[in-house]
Amino acid sequence: MSHPRHGRDAGAPGRPAVLASPVRRRLLAVLATACPLAAAGAVSEAWGAEPLRIIVGYTAGGAVDTLARLVGAALSRSLQEPLVVEDRPGAGGNLAVKLMLQSRADGRTLLLAANALAANVSLYQPPPFDLERDIAPVGMIGRVPVLIAVGADSPLRSLADLLRSARRKPDSLTFASPGIGSTPHLAMLQFEHAAHVRLRHIPYKGGAPAIADALAGEVDCVAVNALEVVDLARSGRMRVLALMSPRPSPRFPGVPTIAQSGYPGFAASVWYGLVAPAGTPRATVLRLNAALRQALADPAVRRPLLGAGGEIDPGTPEQFGRLLLSERARYAALIRNESIHTE
């Protein structure tokens, strides 16, 4: 498939203040009272050792960065060690993966991974890494649904309105996403197939500028991670048309799922987990997995995820590894069938 121009702020990741700020302010307030999570490069010498590090392949202030800081604070408490979060956006998350793989396989450098870890081995050619050879799964964190939303002033009042408009003028209705090959982009492609419609994709570099332009009416709708719009929806600034979760969420009262809207079985979510470089000792991986499970029992970690309609799904390293491989196969088929490519 061909790809339209990048979104208006595709080259400018510095627009997060409009957007993720309500979620970010609330989560960072939790962090400030819960744990003195160190900023990268600002670790007190009193710790006396190199801190643990979580690398994030996305911009500061977004959902993945915020989640990394929240989980990192709880991990720091559980392991009784300092921990820093380092944002390395670029190449759809591949720069962060490369940095993680260049680190020592001693368990002190982790990556907070999302769906792109499984998709990028097909989206980028040649593959930038090998999931089985290069990655040591530590554990899954959970899932958050993808949703379709519009600004409060949009004439689209429901998913049915969106579909009627899309069928009346094929390929003219626009949807924004965090980027080509992002989970919301791929989820919308699947929805287009299911609903037999074609929308015009406007890719951005991250969810924040995509949502900002949806708020401003520059695009007709946005497909995005629920974490990034939950506060905007609650405040009335955005209207959520449909959830891609398997079940309705009490966090979005009255909002139907895609499955409820005539497309049984349809579901799409963003999943998160921690990985380490291959070769990390098994005992270290198990220690980190146990600490992650303890962190995910912390109400300060659970509250924001559950508050966005998400699910917390801790498990073993092996379970997360199986998910990565099954997702790799699923995304490979979708990317091949749609002829999706990076620019």
Score class of each variant (00 low, 15 high):
11 G>V: 03
11 G>F: 11
28 L>F: 13
30 V>C: 05
35 C>E: 13
36 P>H: 06
40 A>L: 14
41 G>I: 08
54 I>D: 02
54 I>H: 10
57 G>C: 09
61 G>Q: 05
65 D>S: 12
65 D>Y: 09
66 T>F: 00
66 T>H: 02
67 L>D: 03
68 A>I: 02
73 A>L: 05
78 S>W: 01
82 P>A: 06
90 G>V: 04
102 Q>A: 10
104 R>V: 13
106 D>L: 08
107 G>Y: 02
108 R>V: 07
117 L>E: 06
124 Y>N: 07
131 L>K: 08
132 E>N: 11
137 P>C: 04
138 V>G: 00
139 G>D: 08
142 G>M: 04
142 G>K: 11
150 V>G: 02
154 S>T: 10
158 S>C: 13
160 A>H: 07
168 R>M: 15
169 K>P: 00
169 K>I: 08
169 K>M: 06
175 F>Q: 02
185 H>Y: 11
189 L>K: 09
189 L>Q: 06
191 F>A: 03
195 A>H: 07
201 H>F: 08
202 I>S: 00
203 P>M: 13
203 P>N: 10
205 K>N: 11
207 G>H: 09
226 A>S: 14
229 V>P: 04
231 D>V: 03
231 D>W: 03
240 V>F: 03
240 V>N: 04
253 P>N: 12
253 P>S: 05
257 T>E: 01
260 Q>A: 05
273 G>P: 11
273 G>C: 06
278 A>M: 08
279 G>H: 10
284 T>V: 14
286 L>F: 04
286 L>A: 11
288 L>I: 13
289 N>Y: 06
291 A>W: 04
298 D>T: 14
306 L>Q: 15
306 L>V: 14
309 G>M: 12
312 I>E: 13
313 D>S: 14
315 G>V: 07
325 L>K: 14
328 R>N: 07
336 R>P: 00
341 H>C: 07
342 T>R: 13
